[in-house]
Design a protein around this nucleic acid. Structure first.
Lengths: 364, 364
DNA sequence: AATCATCTTGGTAACGTTGTCATGCAATTG
DNA sequence: CAATTGCATGACAACGTTACCAAGATGATT
């Protein structure tokens, strides 16, 4: 008699341990073939003939354990394939090895790089990232933080410096280290690591001005959802004005960033301002879209149109023309955030400026 | 007389050894002003004048709660800005709202898309992803799984079908739902969602053959770290051979995938096999690199060289030539994995084939 | 009027660990 | 040699919540 009907997978007849339990459960209502229930400290202690606390100590590599005891415990633990229950441990000891990470979005390559960096450091120290995505919504962020803090993480990493004030309060109650990433132009709750978005914007303006562009435009996307991108644009505008070459115009798409959006936005902006000779884009995806649009349309880059991106993603380094832009250390930002979290117990809150770089490419 | 309670954790009038303790501490020398410690059920219950269990029920939205009780509890909870301790809750109830997610890498856009999809569904149900990265190493994957399972997640999502056998065993002990993503050509532990990598490879071979290419090469990277990419190549080769147009040659880089690697690999492969008229790439990053290389070198695409990618990332849709390739539903894969996890309690393990699509672009 | 089901609340005992003592024993010391 | 130290182990009571059972209150049913 066949139990499963829905599987497309014919060979699922083999190798399906759970089915066996299902069979035996139908046997009798209270007669339960104990599925190999997760072993506990007590089980290991009983088998090894020692006390529970000793097992606990061996598992935690506590000091002052005799070789013989360790031996006994380890064999028993292996025999039962014991895995400690972190829930209980964390509850009692009030410390866990989880780190809450709140990012505004996972679809942006920037944040996956950051997360990659975070994970690379955390995993080396036996820690885990618990992920929360705020969707650029401050209310949602608050909820996410509350939910993540309910797990008593040993620290928390937030994106940006502008959270709802309640966030700081909630973190304060737990008294765990906080690191805010991306931006350092402001006053952080605890530590902060990132670049000065303002300086980057000014530097970009200076760079384009020095390159001789005088009719500069700007393209953004997704209604400038991260506040810091708007702040960056405003600084860019201000600096251009100060240089005596004010921004000609800008176009902010409603859609989220992508190369396609970059193409269409570029088309629209050029149509609105035919005198444009250069565009600064909110990120590299948009800039690539702009570059590709120019290539398709026979607009010569960089003479007819300068293209400048932001972030310095890998693809921009392989395009026929090396993409100019601001290079931001995204992976390193993640790494440094994790490191700061780990060290902040001893060193207290810090602000770390990972500087950006101007890529003087072939598109400007 | 006022006790000046700095700690809200003081017990009520009844039976409170702790209060005495606190009292004796107040006249001790080391009187410490703690910051407001995290409120517990007991604190809320005392303030509201109800039992702890009632508070618990209100917080969990249990049925059969009178409006007046809910009212009392909620005001008390807000006053203390109470947040339930999930650690304790999960320990007692043996269920948590965390989902373990094990991915081979975070630097690959494929997996960040998948994770995005997973998160989008999980967050709608109040669940959280706890992340583990295996770095394509099966031993490391085993460790990561063990570590994540120690938190008693309510489910686990794994990448690929080829884990160390011990993984299935460990999951079996907890008896939680498993979903394996990406590949469906094999026998999953529980549910699986993805595409048939073999069919995709065959379809790509058919497509290129139909387009008239007869001297086809292959470019991969990172020593084909995900097993499935190797399997895919082998199927691709086999199919080409069956069509009577065997693979001319292939180049597998040691470095991880990137457009730059795609460019240099393309150069090398063409040098080795000047008769090549088409290259199938292991992913779109590599393919874009190939396309850009051709554009830089004046090689006409698609007549002199056909370029076919794998995945269908957004940038390939904005390039001057629409990138041909196999489009895989990465985001949907993540979503579906999460959905399967949620439903598998009721519906049991399933295998879901999210079909791929051939993008008949301008580069072939 | 007695019985029974239903709704609402509370009391108690876990869940599986670890912190804090306490204890026994060997090694050191003046 | 008594006194002191250090090491190795154990007993017990938490950590903050929820499962389980009990019980009073209310209303419906016979």
């Amino acid at each position: 008699m066949q139990l499963t009907t829905l599987s497309i997978n014919n060979d699922s007849v083999v190798n399906c341990p759970r089915m066996i339990y299902n069979l035996s459960m139908t046997n009798g209502s209270n007669l339960r073939f104990h599925k190999p229930a997760r072993a506990t400290l007590k089980d290991v202690a009983n088998l090894a003939g020692v006390s529970e606390i000793s097992v606990s100590r061996v598992m935690r590599d506590a000091p002052n354990i005799s070789a013989s005891l360790r031996e006994k415990v380890m064999t028993a633990a292996n025999a039962l394939s014991y895995t400690p229950n972190r829930l209980a441990g964390a509850l009692k000891s009030q410390t866990s090895n989880q780190v809450a990470v709140v990012l505004p979005s996972m679809s942006n390559i920037v944040f996956s790089s950051v997360l990659d960096g975070i994970e690379s450091v955390l995993s080396k120290h036996g820690l885990h990232a618990v992920l929360g995505v705020s969707e650029y919504d401050s209310q949602r962020e608050l909820e996410v933080v509350r939910e993540l803090l309910a797990w008593s993480p040993m620290g928390i990493i937030l994106t940006g410096l502008h959270q709802d004030p309640a966030v700081a309060g909630m973190i304060g109650q737990l008294d765990i280290p906080v690191v805010q990433i991306m931006d350092i132009d402001g006053s952080p709750i605890g530590s902060a690591v990132g670049i000065s978005q303002n300086e980057a914007a000014s530097a970009a303006a200076d760079y384009l001005y020095a390159k001789g562009y005088r009719n500069i435009g700007y393209v953004g996307a997704w209604r400038e959802k991260p506040d810091r991108s708007r702040a960056r644009r405003l600084t860019f505008e201000k600096r251009l004005a100060a240089l005596g070459s004010p921004l000609i115009g800008s176009y902010i798409s409603d859609d989220r960033s992508s190369a396609s959006v970059g193409s269409s936005a570029t088309a629209k902006l050029i149509e609105m301002h035919p005198e444009l000779d250069c565009i600064f884009y909110a990120n590299d995806d948009l800039a690539l879209g702009g570059l590709f649009y120019a290539m398709r349309s026979g607009i010569d880059v960089p003479t007819e149109l300068g293209v400048m991106g932001f972030n310095g993603i890998d693809i921009g380094k392989a395009t026929p023309l090396l993409l100019s832009g601001v290079e931001t250390p995204r992976y390193e930002m993640g790494q440094e955030a994790a490191r700061l979290l780990l060290s902040s117990k001893f060193e207290g809150p810090q602000v770390k400026d990972l500087s950006f770089k101007i890529i003087d490419g072939e598109t400007t």
